[in-house]
Design a protein around this nucleic acid. Structure first.
Lengths: 229, 229
DNA sequence: GTCATAAAGTCATCCGATGATTTTATGACT
DNA sequence: AGTCATAAAATCATCGGATGACTTTATGAC
């Protein structure tokens, strides 16, 4: 079984055009607000068809670099990158992804402890009870309940950015694991979960911080073992 | 003077196609690794030309959702929503953005301490010396040097995800500040900067953690004062 | 000088055709 | 039956041309 290389393989014309135009934009060849050459000219400059130019232009527009106005032209919107971090995250290794998620996890727990209320804690305990223990027939349902609990912990931070990022990384990590690892990583037990809620309830951010790190430590060491094999 | 709406105005067919396909992907219509219908079929399904389908497909490919393989087909790479966390982060408040960046900052410093080497520390100290103190004529240059130092600290974590995210949040926060606040937030002094490098050099993650939090604490309290006014 | 109109410029969309690459089917040969 | 080279089919990649929609600019009457 051979796996195809995915990184620096042969590239198609449209992607080459994207790189070429983006490089010029980042090099400030056109200032913000300035008009790019029209499609026909770009087509000639890059020696590709107009359709290919359009594909490249649309990609750059979707990434916030430029904006097309029908009947007028194509204009530079920004010379700063926005979407690269997340595509970067996608291509990164599992260890890096875990570390990033842990960063969000820890900070969310700290904030949750600071902003904790009795109702919030009751809600978390309810979700944890509903989650139950691992052993069961419907594995997918258990994973969903487990995820619901963790998401609630993050939501307790009352920080929309952390919530959004956490969801993204969770999905990403789940996919990476499914794609690379067959073995299951160790699932922290009920006590470890409860410890997080207890720490949040205590209102002490350092304690919440430590609880999350203790929670994740076995998973990370297991991951390292798997990655080294 | 009237300004055109830019958000939910009339949209072109290609963007509509992008949304339609992305929605299906996020709804798990096709699982990861599964093949999408071919261009002709998509063209018929969406009632747009094949060229338009290609533009949409290429946008989604550039965002990491799918991958096209010539001669084979188009396949789902990931169902993790990349656009939502970004737009969410953009719309979020400055406090949320700062908290998210702090999360990355702290974790990066911890990892940097764990993976610290003499050469790395020397490099950080050199950047810090080059950065110098604030008072000067060329404010922009100083900000650039300051940013270079902080980015180097993150890079010392040797985690590509943290680096990418940190850059994103930094520009985001800079834009938000420029758009909302005129007043400058307090700039941590040289001692606070040096404390971070010292902590990393010590190799103790907890110390690095604390140093970063001490570094950011005055900025956060000042921010709270500004936001409350 | 103003303003309606025409003309030119530009992106949006469609269609058809050909090439490149991968996958699958075929069939000969052992 | 199994293996392997070859042909055929499927699919994306790229090209060129044509038409429509929209914006900007030029024109000319008043």
């Amino acid at each position: 079984m051979t796996y195809p290389m995915r990184s620096l393989n042969k590239t198609n014309l449209a992607d080459t055009a994207v790189d070429a135009i983006r490089t010029e934009i980042l090099a400030r060849r056109w200032t913000v607000g300035e008009k790019l050459p029209n499609e026909a000219t770009l087509s000639a400059m890059l020696a590709v068809s107009r359709g290919t130019v359009r594909e490249a232009v649309r990609v750059l527009a979707s990434q916030g670099y430029i904006e097309t106005r029908q009947g007028s032209g194509t204009y530079v919107l920004s010379t700063a990158d926005t979407t690269r971090p997340l595509t970067m995250a996608r291509r990164a290794g599992l260890r890096d992804q875990f570390e990033a998620r842990l960063a969000l996890d820890v900070e969310a727990a700290r904030l949750a402890a600071l902003r904790q209320t009795p109702t919030m804690v009751v809600g978390l305990r309810a979700l944890l009870a509903e989650r139950g223990h691992s052993g069961g027939k419907d594995q997918a349902a258990f994973i969903a309940r487990d995820f619901a609990f963790h998401k609630a912990v993050i939501a307790a931070s009352q920080n929309a950015v952390l919530v959004g990022m956490y969801e993204f990384f969770s999905t990403l990590i789940a996919e990476t694991i499914a794609a690379t690892l067959e073995d299951d990583l160790p699932e922290p037990d009920m006590a470890a979960h409860a410890a997080i809620v207890d720490a949040i309830e205590s209102g002490e951010p350092d304690r919440a911080d430590a609880a999350v790190r203790r929670f994740m430590a076995p998973v990370l060491t297991a991951l390292d073992m798997l990655l080294l094999s």
